[in-house]
Design a protein around this nucleic acid. Structure first.
Lengths: 198, 198
DNA sequence: CGAGAAGCGTAATCATGATTACGGTTGCGA
DNA sequence: TCGCAACCGTAATCATGATTACGCTTCTCG
């Protein structure tokens, strides 16, 4: 009933926000523009989100929740660590380098208060790292990998997997990767990691 | 005489621009603020740089020219490839993760036109990559490394060296690294690279 | 020394966009 | 069916900041 339509409405609004964001960047995205595109009113936006930053805060939180949920699903499948890692990589890549994540990262870079950046880091990397650590430790238990510092190992994995692609995407000099490219890069990262820590 | 003072003046202006940029971000940095801080007049800024974007364009170009110059100096020393690589890494890191580069990357992320991003990529990565390729090929000639695709090898090196630190800096969640940290990371990158391609 | 260019400081323009207000609809529960 | 609360569309506010204009001072050059 009520909740349904409100959730739908929010989704439309956030959809519109992403559309503008991806097209014009943070500075170029106005509340009025979002309202117009979503066929909502200014008043509703402000009453729901408080202010512009609040709206973007909501976008970040929702987006990173999705990321974590997908990764946790991969983990829950409870396959052998190497398979889990192989599944995790491409998924993480397409999430991190997708248009939405990139748009949010751009917003965070443009946000003078730094609040969005803190949020992205906190709900992003900070909550993903433990999951990766978990997989890597499982791999170590199986004898697939050898390392002392699980955090460092996870960092190495992320470097191999993601590298500097995010910043290049954010700067606008790298197109969104194809599914196949994510697969390939994910596989290479696992190979390299095993080679380095095997 | 004339040129001297004008160059000095430009430097003061650009200094002021960086100061504000590092403190308030691209959107929060106004031409008037720069003028005030540099004790210059609006009119001068506009007559010299054309418009706001022009000023930032100048910053990017000058900054990347310095980066390239320093790296080329390392190359010109003409030491054994492994030493060159070891010298190159920390230098590149401190340049790429320094406050100035980060401020410029933030500007590029915030710039709706994408022009700054294109410039950074073009004068940054695009002009650094060939230098790295050059070192790696020398290393291959010496039998230190083995690889087919020099571009891919250089990419791998950059991933190991830089990883996702740039985006984390830009987002505001990573402090500028110390000199020692750059050294350590540079050494680790070389070790890993040799391990993977050796 | 005197004229003009270049630069300073300050005060307009002009646009944009966040934020707030308001009259008209609409859907829902009493 | 009535009245209200939430929402729409649109039109104010209000601030900020890019860009321009202007009168005054300071060099530079002749």
């Amino acid at each position: 009933m009520k909740d349904d339509s409100r959730t739908d409405r929010q989704q439309q609004i956030e959809e519109a926000a992403y559309a503008l964001l991806e097209q014009k960047g943070y500075a170029g995205t106005s509340m009025q523009g979002i309202a117009r595109l979503a066929r909502a009113s200014n008043e509703t936006l402000y009453s729901w989100y408080g202010d512009k930053q609040g709206l973007f805060r909501a976008l970040v939180i929702r987006n990173t929740a999705e990321v974590r949920a997908q990764l946790e699903a991969d983990l829950a499948a409870d396959r052998p660590p190497r398979d889990t890692l192989t599944a995790l990589g491409p998924r993480l890549l397409s999430l991190l380098l997708g248009d939405r994540a990139v748009a949010l990262n751009r917003s965070a870079a443009a946000d003078p208060s730094g609040e969005l950046g803190a949020l992205i880091a906190q709900s992003g990397r900070d909550s993903v790292m433990p999951l990766i650590v978990q997989v890597l430790e499982a791999a170590r238990a199986e004898g697939l990998l050898r390392f002392d510092d699980a955090g460092a190992a996870a960092g190495l994995y992320l470097d191999l997997l993601v590298g500097d692609q995010q910043i290049r995407r954010v700067i606008g000099r790298l197109p969104a990767p194809s599914e196949a490219a994510c697969q390939a890069r994910g596989a290479a990262a696992v190979t390299h990691l095993c080679h380095l820590l095997g």
